[in-house]
């Protein structure tokens, strides 16, 4: 059962990374315009600009 001493903290740490990722996305405004983000992904104008 000593394997739990590694696996449980590992599982928690992975989950925690996910949580931090979500909070970061929230604070950087990525949840402010969900409809826009859904359609922006289809636009390739940013690529043309760089050419």
């Amino acid at each position: 059962m000593t394997v739990l001493l590694i696996l449980v903290p590992l599982a928690l740490a992975l989950g925690f990374v996910g949580l931090l990722g979500f909070l970061w996305a929230l604070n950087s405004g990525q949840y402010d315009d969900l409809d826009g983000a859904a359609s922006r992904v289809l636009s390739d104008e940013d690529i043309e600009d760089k050419k």
Partner: peptide
């Protein structure tokens, strides 16, 4: 926004505690 932040933390905790 604050509610969403609270929800994220509560949901994270709930999933891990349930585990």
């Amino acid at each position: 926004k604050r509610l969403l932040r609270c929800l994220a933390i509560a949901a994270f905790a709930a999933m891990n505690i349930m585990l």
